[in-house]
Amino acid sequence: MPTTMIGRRPIDVNDEGFLTAYDQWDEELGATLAELIGLELTDRHWQVLRFLRADYAGRKETATLRRTSTLGGFGIKELFTLFPGKPAKKMAYVAGLPKPKGCV
């Protein structure tokens, strides 16, 4: 399991670079992660990220786009706008969570 330096801190990641330790993440790190993938975080981004963190804490599985939309109350279109290209993976990365496993 590799470790990488993010914002002057050693962070555990998998081979792709997704964080593997839930507790190493804090909002400051989240902001750094967003910067690394070229995202500028707004309040709305943070609402999504906080939903993902809280949801993961309860079920140990990253919410899919569909779950984030139906349970978190974020529109699908909005999620594609906030995290363009690959929304589910970008959301998971910035929130310091594994990639979602679900198909839908």
Partner: peptide
């Protein structure tokens, strides 16, 4: 520990 920060690639597939 890797020297450079390991960041996943999020290339937008639909774009050239």
């Amino acid at each position: 520990m890797t020297e450079t920060t390991l960041v996943p690639s999020f290339t937008d597939e639909a774009k050239p």
